[in-house]
């Protein structure tokens, strides 16, 4: 019985290893576009229609012109909104373009994935490093106390009461609207040190991702480390900041740039892609019963 299960598992893993990253990346990207695509109807309607067609007729999703059409739709919708839309929606445009250019070459897809991840994290690390309010821990402290996406983490790990978070958000609204000139936020004794350690970890992780992905072609250590640093970043970032759309895009690009001999990394990225849905579970309600 156990042997049969092990054999099946081994066969499944072998099949996963033998899948073409272009096929898997294309399918997962279509799912990403449907579930976490642009939130504007004029963009969503054609995107979902095309994505559904691509999922139903798999050979279609291997055609460069199919991805060219998706790129065009995304670009036409995103460009006029670039100053109000989230950055990962812009990254999706580059990713669709990369897919359209590299459907004929597996190596080219890996090349695009590495460069997009590397440069994206280089800019992300740069902005964090040059912003004094990030480096001193203020930003993550403020975010933990007010941002709804950090609710679960703030309650379970930082030990901040739900009522306190509500009060902070109300104080924030009053200050932004000008009803009061300033307001004091409430926190717990763990929030400060936690924010500072998260700040340090985020900065180091982002610099490492940028360096390892951009230098992986020339430096062996970077090549060997790149999957570990990206996977740990996804593992620790997205349960806290539940921006699953961005997390999914990173795992798809991470998966797409794995080499032939990097089967384990491929399975890790696929596992993270699936596990990320668990980050959307309202854990604070389940754990704390509130």
């Amino acid at each position: 019985m156990l042997q049969a299960v092990t054999r099946r598992l081994e066969r499944a893993i072998h099949e996963l290893h033998s899948l073409d990253p272009r096929d898997v990346s294309a399918r997962l990207t279509l799912l990403l576009l449907v579930l976490y695509g642009p939130g504007y109807w004029d963009l969503s309607v054609p995107t979902v229609m095309l994505a559904a067609a691509g999922m139903t007729i798999p050979p279609l999703a291997r055609q460069p012109y199919f991805w060219g059409a998706l790129t065009l739709i995304q670009a036409v919708g995103v460009i006029p909104r670039v100053y109000v839309i989230d950055n990962h929606k812009v990254l999706m445009v580059y990713w669709c373009l990369a897919l359209s250019l590299s459907m004929k070459s597996r190596a080219l897809l890996a090349h695009h994935s590495r460069l997009l991840i590397g440069w994206c994290f280089l800019f992300a690390a740069y902005w964090k490093a040059v912003t004094p309010g990030f480096v001193d821990g203020s930003f993550l402290h403020f975010t933990m106390l007010t941002d709804t996406r950090f609710t679960g983490f703030a309650q379970i790990v930082a030990g901040i009461d739900a009522g306190v978070l509500d009060e902070n958000r109300s104080a924030l609204r009053s200050t932004v609207s000008g009803d009061v000139a300033s307001a004091r936020l409430l926190d717990s004794r763990f929030a400060g040190p936690l924010a500072l350690s998260m700040t340090l970890w985020t900065l180091v992780s982002e610099v490492l991702i940028a360096v390892t992905f951009l230098l992986s072609k020339w430096i062996r250590l970077a090549r060997n480390l790149r999957h570990v640093v990206l996977a740990q970043f996804v593992c620790f970032t997205y349960p806290v900041a539940t921006v699953v759309g961005f997390g999914w895009l990173l795992t798809i690009m991470g998966y797409a740039q794995t080499g032939r001999m990097e089967g384990r990394s491929r399975i890790v990225f696929l596992g993270l892609f699936l596990a990320m849905q668990l980050f959307l579970v309202p854990w604070e309600r389940l754990v704390l019963g509130k």
């Binding site: 670039v82 839309i85 989230d86 950055n87 994206c120 994290f121 992300a124 912003t131 309010g133 403020f142």
Partner: peptide, 13 residues
């Protein structure tokens, strides 16, 4: 910093 395709999100209040 949050918008505009520069990847400066989650860096400032």
């Amino acid at each position: 910093q949050w918008k505009g395709g520069g990847f400066g999100m989650f860096s400032t209040v």
